[in-house]
Computed example of a mutant assay.
Amino acid sequence: MKKTIKNLAIVALVAFTTFSFTTIAGEKKEIKIDKSKVVWKGYKVTGSHEGSIAIKSGSLTFDDNKLTGGEFVIDMSTISSTDLDGGMKGKLDGHLKSDDFFGVENHPTSTLVFKKVAASGKNAYTVTGDLTIKGKTNPITFVISIYGNKATASLKVDRTKYDVRYGSTSFFDGLKDKAIYDEFDLVADLEF
């Protein structure tokens, strides 16, 4: 009898310990890439350019309808301007894909992996994640808002942290009106 009680106690202790350290995976919701978009905007001394870039894959993870994680893969080969036409558009798009900027041939994707998610309002979360561009990974913090099956996020990215130095006054002197600011914006409208 004592041996049976002892065995039951051991089984209960092992079960309790196992359940205490086992995380239950949240519900992963895939991003509908055909209904989602990412818009970029870059700034220079004489103005700005904007365009789009496609999501290759992505998901958001929820636990009890609360955001707990996410991960995205961006198809860098799709980067294009939307504020230019014809030859000027082709020239800028090609330059953005070149090694001067995003080196798409050698770095066809960029990624964002959520590392920490904290509620910051009724439908808003502050996210800290790892952003990888051109093989370089840096932490980034941003706010994402979720309404039903849609989410919106705005990120401000310092391109110099990812070895995108072309036209940066942080690395080159005498650029004057040819200077391109180090930070660019990404705005994501997502549906899942």
Rank of each mutant, 00 (worst) to 15 (best):
K134P: 04
N65M: 15
A153N: 00
L60E: 05
V11Y: 09
T137D: 09
V127M: 02
V117W: 11
Y181A: 13
L131N: 03
G51K: 09
G69V: 12
D64Q: 12
S110Y: 04
G26W: 10
A25Y: 08
D189P: 00
L13R: 07
F21S: 01
T23F: 14
R159T: 13
M88D: 07
K122R: 00
P108E: 07
N7A: 13
A118E: 15
W40S: 03
T61D: 10
T61P: 01
M1I: 08
D182F: 09
G90W: 03
T141F: 01
T23P: 04
G174D: 09
I79S: 10
S154K: 13
L131E: 05
D100E: 11
G167P: 08
P139F: 14
M76F: 01
I144N: 00
K156T: 13
K44D: 12
D158Y: 07
Y166L: 13
L112D: 08
K3E: 12
I53A: 02
I180Y: 09
M1D: 06
S168I: 10
S120T: 05
A54M: 15
Y162A: 15
D75E: 05
K44E: 14
F21W: 11
S20R: 06
T46L: 01
L155E: 06
Y162V: 15
K136R: 08
G86S: 03
Y147R: 10
E27M: 10
S170V: 09
V39L: 15
L84E: 13
D185Q: 05
K28G: 04
H49F: 04
T61L: 14
P108L: 08
V113D: 04
A54D: 14
T22H: 01
D93W: 09
D185T: 13
K134D: 12
F101W: 10
A54E: 13
G58L: 14
G148Q: 04
F171L: 14
M88Y: 03
L186S: 06
F114G: 01
Y181E: 08
T23W: 02
D182S: 15
S48Q: 07
G87A: 11
I55F: 15
V11E: 05
G94Y: 07
L8Q: 01
S59R: 04
K176R: 06
M88C: 00
I74S: 08
K6P: 03
K56N: 07
L190E: 02
V45W: 06
I31C: 05
G135C: 11
S81W: 10
Y166I: 12
T141E: 03
V73A: 07
S110Q: 01
I33D: 13
